[in-house]
Amino acid sequence: MNTTDILTNSTQAGTAVSPRLAIYCREIHAEILRALRTPAFLVPTLAMPLAFYTLFALLLAPPGSDAGIYVLATYGVLAALGPSLFGFGAGIAADRDAGILGLKRLSPLPPGAFLIARLASAALFTFIVLLGLDALAVGGAGVRLPVQTWLSLLAVHLLSVIPFCLLGLCIGLRTGASAAMALTNVLFIGLAVLGGLWMPVSMFPPALQQVALALPTYHLSALALQIVGHGIGGSAWVHELFVLGYVLLFGGFAWRAWVARTH
């Protein structure tokens, strides 16, 4: 066997599609197993949005209010924020510190597979929380929406995973494990509260309202609220443009960090 043999062998394996796909699937499976076996990650990220929905939409909502719909739209963004930020920010920083990422990057694993697996894991757990939120909304708060609306809402919430994961990746690749954990916590709370996921931005003092305009959580929840007929101002395309900007910004920083970090 010579070098070109190795190359052709692996390319042949690649062109058969299934072996390469199998690598991605196994990596995703392993990543999900890891998350499932880490209660410290699982419980807060999964339980928190559901607990808050129960509290604010079911128990504390004044009778006849449409808090059930409003909070569904904003907590769906929260459902994406948790697994994405913690999985990528604190999670990747910890993997890097321990040398787990270093070993992966020396293996023949395609470089993107590690990140795709993480992304898939974050998306899956987000999806599970979204299903829970939907169940609470329909069963508990009596929310009724057209199927088209449900699907659009689901799409916005699931796609929120992408900018949040990229933001997490910036942290995970740039900071040490303990600093990343602290920073992730601060960002999680900060983005959730200041972005208007807990209470409407219109209730903020004017200065904080300006801050909200700069946050991805604000624009994503604005899109979600618009879908359920509770728009908080601004055209959809402006919010979409902001979200795209965040994807490019965080993606660019993450890419630079990924290339610079080889250990």
């Binding site: 070098t3 190795i6 190359l7 692996s10 392993a30 197993l33 890891r34 076996r37 880490t38 993997d95 321990a98 040398g99 787990i100 270093g102 070993l103 020396l106 293996s107 023949p108 395609p110 080889t262």
Partner: peptide, 27 residues
Amino acid sequence: LGAAPGSAAARAGSGVMLQSAALAAQL
């Protein structure tokens, strides 16, 4: 292996054990 260190071709033919490496504790 005749290729640039760290390239896909080099990685495909290398088995590596590092001094300071770890694996996922949960698997």
